[in-house]
Design a protein around this nucleic acid. Structure first.
Lengths: 335, 335
DNA sequence: GTGAAAGCGCTAACAC
DNA sequence: GTGTTAGCGCTTTCAC
C-alpha cells in the first residue's frame, strides 16, 4: 500500500541508510548508487513521510501564527509576508484565530506548543504578560508580533505610532482644531495604549484641554467605528483621529453616508492604516499614518526562523516606524 | 528533559497502555487508576507529543488550505470561517499562499499531500484540471473551494453569480444603458468565466450589441482595476460592471478621485463583492452582488471534515448563490 | 481491569 | 562508500 523507504532500498539493492542519505544529501553517495536510488524512487512513486520524519528528528518545519483576526487585511498581509519568508526556507505556517479572545488564545498556545510547531508567532490579545508567559514551555521559540509587553523575555517586532500621532494632533491644533476626538482599538492592547498616550501628550503639549469624553475605544475587531464617530460628533468635535485600521476603513464611507465631508464639515480626519492602495485615493482628504505591514511580517518570519535555528541568539526587539502622510503632501504626482 | 508517557506510567505505577487509554478514553480504566494517572500527569507537567501521536496513528488533525491570496479579505474571511469549524473539531489549519501562481500551487500540493495534512482545501489557480488532478495522490481528501472545474471528481463549494449578474445587466439596460463595460478577474478562473458568460448572455438577450472591447480582465490579485476603468471610460461606457471583489473595492474611490460619481456621471456601477460592512454605506449608489463568504468557508470546512472522516462518502458539489441588492432597495431601514 | 511488547517510517550513530 | 540497527513516543493487539 504505502511505499516506505525500505521498499525503495530493496528495489535499489541498497540499505535504507543509503536511501535516506541520498535523499537528504547528508553523506557521500556515489553517483552510481544515487542513480539506482532515484530510479527506484521514481519507479515506486515514493514520497518520504513527513510525520515519520518530523517525529524522528523532532523538527516539524512548521511555524504557528496566533492571530487575533485573520479576516482583517492588516493581519492577512502580515501573514502573507511572513509566509513568504517561511516557505522560502521550506517551512509551513499554521494559523490560529483568536478573535481577540484570551481564552481562545490560551487554548491555541497549549495546542500549538505541544509538538505541533517549531516556533510561534504571536499577535497576542492577552491583557497581562504573565498569563501569556505561563503558557509557553521554557525555551520554546516565540516572537511577539505587532503587540508587545514590557518584559523583554521574547523577541518582538512592532510598529511605533507615537510620533506620527503626536505630529498629527499638533497639525490639527495648528490648523485651529480645539476639540479633537480620538477613536482607539481594544484598550488593553499595547498598540492602543501607545496611540492614546501619544494623543494625550500632544494635546497637553499643544495646550489643548483634555476631555476624557473625547477618547473612545472600539473592539479592534469588526467595524465598531460608527457608534464612536456618532458620539464624537454629538460631543462637538471639530476634528477626529481614528487610530485603528479596521475602524478607519469604514470611517470615510460612514461619514459620507451622513453627509459629512472631511475638510469641509470636519476640520480633519486622520487615520492609522497601512500600505494598502484602497485609501490612496483619499490622500487629499485625510492625514494618514501608514504602517509598514509587509516589513512587519517579513521581519516576524525572519526572527522566528532565527530563534528556531539558533535558540541561543539574543532576544531582539525590533520597532518599526510608520510613515506620516499629511493630506496634500506627496503621492499626488505618482500613480 | 522531555516528559514521556513512560515517565508518567512509572510514576503512576501503571503501564504505558493504561496511561494512553486513560488520556484517550479508549478502554475502561478504574476510577482509582485514572486518578493516579492524572495525578502523575499533573505532577510531571506531561503533554502528549503531537508528532509521535500522528506518526503512530497516521492522523494529523490538520487540514491544508491552498489559497491564491491570503491578504485578500475575501479569502481571509473564508479561512476564518473554515478555521472556526475545523478548530471546533480539534483540527488545525495550514495555509499556503499561491499568489495566483500555478507553479507555487504545484509545489504546495506536493508538499502538503506528503503526510503533512489529512485533507486539503483548494481554491485553485490552475488553468486545467488535469494538472491539479495529477498532483493529488489517489484517495486523498480534497475539497475545491470557490473555484471549480467541469470534472466531478472532487467535492466542491462555490458561488454562482450567473443570475445576479444577468439581472444586473438587464436592469442597467432597462435604465437606458447602451454601452455596458465589464471588468473581470483572471480569465482562466471558473468564477471569471461564469461571470463574463452571464454578461454576454444578458447583453444578447437584452438586445444590446456585444463589443469585445468592453470586456476587460484584471489579475484577480492586486488592485488592477484603475487601468481597466480608464480604458472603459475612454471607450465611452455609460455603465460599468466590476465583477471581482478586490477590483471592486477600489472602484468607487478611484472614480471619485477622477471626479466621477455613480448615478450622476455614469449610469450605474455594479459590484460583485461579499458581505463586508465596508460597502454598505454605498448601498444607495451601486448595485451589489453579495457573495455568502462566511457560508462558503463554513461548508468548505464541513465538507473536508466529512471527506477526511468518511472517505467513501459521495462527492458533493455545493453551489451557493449570491444575493442581488439593487441600489435603493433593502437595507436602508436597517443599521 | 491491566500489562507486555510490537512496531509505525525514518535518521543517525557506529561499524566495516 | 555503504550497511546494520537502535530507537524517537505513542497506540494497540494480544494476553491474562
Amino acid at each position: 500500500m504505502k511505499v516506505t523507504i525500505s521498499d525503495v532500498a530493496r528495489l535499489a539493492g541498497v540499505s535504507t541508510a543509503t536511501v535516506s542519505h541520498t535523499i537528504n544529501n547528508t553523506r557521500y553517495v556515489s553517483g552510481d548508487t544515487k542513480e539506482k536510488v532515484y530510479q527506484a524512487i521514481r519507479q515506486l512513486g515514493y514520497t518520504p513521510d513527513a510525520s515519520a520524519r518530523s517525529f524522528r528528528t523532532g523538527k516539524k518545519r512548521t511555524i504557528g501564527f496566533i492571530v487575533p483576526d485573520i479576516s482583517n487585511k492588516f493581519f492577512g498581509t502580515i501573514i502573507e509576508s511572513a509566509e513568504n519568508v517561511l516557505s522560502a526556507e521550506g517551512y509551513h505556517l499554521i494559523i490560529a484565530n483568536t478573535k481577540e479572545n484570551m481564552d481562545r488564545e490560551e487554548t491555541n498556545l497549549r495546542l500549538l506548543t505541544a509538538g505541533l510547531v517549531d516556533g510561534l508567532l504571536v499577535a497576542s490579545t492577552m491583557e497581562d504578560f504573565a498569563r501569556l508567559d505561563g503558557l509557553i514551555p521554557a525555551g520554546f521559540p516565540v516572537v511577539l508580533v505587532d503587540r508587545t509587553f514590557d518584559s523583554q523575555k521574547y523577541s518582538s517586532v512592532s510598529v511605533s505610532n507615537f510620533q506620527p500621532i503626536y505630529r498629527s494632533v499638533c497639525r490639527l491644533a495648528a490648523q485651529g482644531a480645539r476639540r479633537i476626538g480620538v477613536v482607539g482599538g481594544l484598550p488593553r492592547l499595547s498598540t492602543t495604549k501607545e496611540r492614546i498616550a501619544a494623543y494625550r501628550a500632544a494635546m497637553k503639549d499643544c495646550g489643548l484641554p483634555l476631555d476624557e469624553n473625547l477618547i473612545l475605544y472600539g473592539d479592534s475587531m469588526e467595524n465598531s467605528a460608527p457608534p464612536c464617530l456618532d458620539r464624537l460628533l454629538e460631543r462637538g468635535c471639530d476634528a477626529i483621529l481614528v487610530c485603528q485600521g479596521l475602524m478607519a476603513s469604514v470611517t470615510i464611507a460612514y461619514l459620507r453616508g451622513k453627509g459629512i465631508q472631511p475638510r469641509r464639515d470636519l476640520e480633519l480626519v486622520s487615520f492609522v492604516d497601512y500600505d494598502t492602495h484602497a485609501y490612496e485615493f483619499y490622500y487629499d482628504q485625510v492625514d494618514r499614518i501608514v504602517q509598514p505591514v509587509v516589513e512587519l511580517g517579513k521581519i516576524a518570519g525572519e526572527q522566528i526562523l532565527l530563534r528556531v535555528e539558533k535558540p541561543d541568539a539574543p532576544v531582539a526587539e525590533r520597532v518599526l516606524t510608520s510613515a506620516y502622510r499629511p493630506w496634500g503632501e506627496g503621492e499626488a504626482g505618482q500613480e
